[in-house]
Amino acid sequence: MTIVLNKPEIDGLADAVGVLREWQYEGAPTQLHPGDLGWFWRAGAEATAAAVRTWSRAGRILAVGLLDGPDLLRLTTAPDARQDEELARQLVSDVTDPARGVLPAGRVNIEAPPNTLFPDLLGAEEGWPLDDPWTPLRRDLTAPGPAPDLRIEEVGSARAHGFAALLGAAFDGSRFTEDSWHVMASGVPYADARCLLAYDDGGDGGGDAVAAVTVWSAGPGRPGILEPMGVHRDHRRRGYGEQITLAAAAALRDLGASSALVATPSSNTAAVATYESAGFERREETRDRYRAA
């Protein structure tokens, strides 16, 4: 049967989010998560739909891709389609031909689950080499972890401005605004998400917001992710990254997640150390495939 490449309309995003939820399971390779679409949703439903691609056979979605920027495709497949040769070859054909409307000409990267046929074919037959390594980390949520020492508040409409301000102070060039929060929170994936702010106030209810995180569950019994986590640039090296990460793990556990996942460039040793201090364990490094310009 023919594999069909599709660019869904806004009303088709729920289907893409739904299959991504189903494809998350313990022991799965690092892969695209519904929370990744949820974080992208801050740009709006129309922009999210424009960035999503699906591949289907006989009406069943077998692969979902997110153009997380014009030159990066993050893609995963149904667990039972990891070694599907017809699908893998169609994916290779579609991502390597700019006329197919997936990736443009020039330097581009593809993130896909390791040890699956599609990225292996890209490397072996199309000459896409491996890029710099990323370190995935995981924390088991079967049992509760230590409580954070900071005051943690869930972000709703009243705290959206403070959350946006914290991200601006944590990430250079951040364009996240109060409106971005409202748009993101209106998206389908946010039903399984929480935004948190940490305050260093000594328990007196005052003080400054020092760190923020958003967590995304994929439903009970499935892994959840942290995306993003940041500490205010004026409050770093005080353990606040560890504390907000502990709060994130607790929030995911409350949402029913079986584990908490995060990934960071392996070169960012400080971030890796922060997650490890919060009880996350390193998993096998992953690498994108890239095509040189």
Rank of each mutant, 00 (worst) to 15 (best):
V4A: 13
A14G: 10
V17R: 11
V19Y: 00
V19K: 03
E22Q: 12
W23V: 00
Q24C: 10
Y25P: 04
A28C: 14
T30G: 13
D36V: 03
L37M: 01
W41R: 11
E46K: 14
V52A: 00
W55A: 04
G59R: 10
A63V: 04
L67M: 10
D68G: 06
T76H: 03
T77N: 12
A78V: 14
A78I: 08
Q83G: 06
R89H: 09
L91Y: 06
V95C: 14
P98M: 07
P104T: 08
R107E: 15
V108H: 02
T116D: 03
L117D: 11
F118S: 06
L121G: 08
E125K: 07
W128E: 06
D131C: 04
P133Y: 15
W134N: 15
R139T: 04
T142D: 12
G145T: 02
P146H: 07
A147C: 09
E153C: 11
A158R: 13
A165F: 02
G173T: 00
G173F: 02
S174D: 09
R175T: 14
D179Y: 11
S180M: 08
S180P: 05
S186M: 07
V188W: 05
A193V: 04
R194H: 05
R194Y: 10
A198Q: 07
Y199V: 01
Y199H: 14
D200R: 09
D204T: 04
G205A: 00
G205S: 05
G206C: 00
G207K: 00
D208W: 12
A211K: 02
V215G: 01
A218C: 02
G221N: 03
P223H: 03
M229N: 07
V231Q: 02
R233C: 11
D234Q: 10
D234V: 04
Y240R: 00
E242I: 10
T245S: 15
T245V: 15
L246I: 05
L246R: 14
L255M: 09
A257K: 03
L261C: 02
V262S: 11
A263Q: 13
A263D: 14
P265Q: 13
T269C: 08
T269V: 13
A271L: 05
A271G: 04
V272N: 09
A273K: 13
T274V: 15
R283C: 11
T286L: 13
T286E: 05
R287F: 03
